[in-house]
Write a protein that binds this DNA or RNA. Structure first.
Lengths: 234, 234
DNA sequence: CGAGGAGTTGACGTTGGTCAATAAATGTGG
DNA sequence: CCACATTTATTGACCAACGTCAACTCCTCG
């Protein structure tokens, strides 16, 4: 089996502050996996056998209800942790992760978590910082869902997406992975119909440009005004 | 200053697995505080100087938007941690906590967190377990807000409240602290009007009994059916 | 070239929010 | 202990946001 090079992870925020030989030792227990587009990386309710760092591609984290409805909790971009149930004392995954594009991930056996946390306290702290940020994100999302109406929620979601995963183009900032109306609906608690109507309305106003499985924000600033609810009437 | 006795905390889940002398040492750096009803314990955006265990009373954790709207993120009952920003690498509190009743809390200086986590790893793990449970809770709440309509959300909220804070009475299970229609609305992302209408409707069906600042669930099972969306038509 | 996935758009109805008025309970000061 | 203010709750009338249903178009892939 080919050795994993330290340079794969040395630049990532989660591994910041770790010594070169720490990184090497951590990599010795890692496996690298390729996951094909639209296949699951781990599944809700399944035993939390591994935790992961996404090296390449994009993943979406999805939580489903008993009756089959689902919500996209977040998107994961390269460099980010996922599936860290073990770090939170869980034995099963609370959500599923699905590759949005072909992905490369590093996977560590979940049972190594306690050793890692004590052997590399910086890594532990960095991980918990991530957890803290995510907890805050999802709480913010609850607040948005409770207080904002659909138009603002969708606007906020798009802004978050370009912040995390935007690529500058001539036309504006492109969300850098395929995303459908349905996906946006599942992130914001609405229907693909409403998302479609919003996007066409915004397109007419020159805020966005959208097509099949892609959205470009042409005027982030004006979309932000809309998201914040200033920008009285159209 | 009076010494704090180990029996204050020895039975609490967060301190499970710790030695008696560990508990004693931890208590040496704790202060005990009384907080009056309706006053803040810590405030959103404020410097995270301390973390807390609630010993007596009830607290509500509230997150507000820039424009003053607020959402009740959760209620805290005796024995639970709160304000653990430091454990998640945060320097400010992401939400406020307000005493719902007169409260007694133990407070530790936030800067002690790193020492605690290394000196008492069990405590650290227990804390992160709590964080994991809360992250899961709030993600579940997002799913509910995205997929369920108001009636079911309110039903779910009440069920969660009696689970966490219910007291058996002759009439049914009482939510064991003062809670207004407005509070329930802020937990579920609706208005006090809608909550009022729902409660009176449920009262007519014999599911609950409610009055000023109090709610009793008479038939938890039937309310659960309603929350789960089985129980077709009325 | 055909099938299936993604998107658009119109018509319609319902949920639940907004506005407003009133009542009931609690607290406060004289 | 009573008068009055304040907080909490109830209820009706109205209507808008947005979900549902349905039909149709346009891509893309095999």
């Amino acid at each position: 089996m080919s050795r994993l090079d330290r340079s794969l992870i040395s630049g990532l925020p989660v591994f910041e502050g770790l010594q070169a030989d720490d990184l090497d030792r951590m990599l010795q227990s890692a496996r690298s996996l390729r996951i094909e587009k639209e296949t699951p990386i781990f599944e809700q309710g399944g035993e939390a056998h591994s935790f992961f760092v996404l090296l390449d591609g994009r993943a979406r984290v999805v939580k489903s209800t008993a009756d089959g409805q689902q919500v996209i909790v977040r998107y994961i971009v390269p460099g980010e942790l996922m599936g860290i149930a073990q770090a939170l004392g869980r034995t099963t995954y609370p959500a599923s992760a699905i590759a949005v594009l072909d992905c490369v991930v590093l996977a560590w056996p979940g049972r190594l978590w306690p050793e890692f946390a004590t052997a590399y306290p910086t890594f532990g702290m960095n991980t918990y910082k991530t957890v803290g940020a995510r907890l805050n994100d999802v709480q913010t999302q609850v607040v948005e869902m409770a207080t904002e109406q659909v138009e603002r929620r969708v606007a906020h979601s798009l802004l978050r997406l370009i912040k995390q995963s935007g690529r500058k183009t001539e036309a504006g900032i492109l969300i850098d992975f395929p995303i459908t109306r349905q996906d946006i609906a599942e992130m914001t608690g609405t229907t693909l119909h409403t998302v479609s109507r919003l996007l066409t309305a915004w397109e007419e106003k020159g805020l966005v440009r959208s097509g099949r499985q892609q959205v470009t924000i042409k005027e982030p600033h004006r979309l932000l005004l809309l998201a914040e609810g200033r920008s009285r009437q159209d």
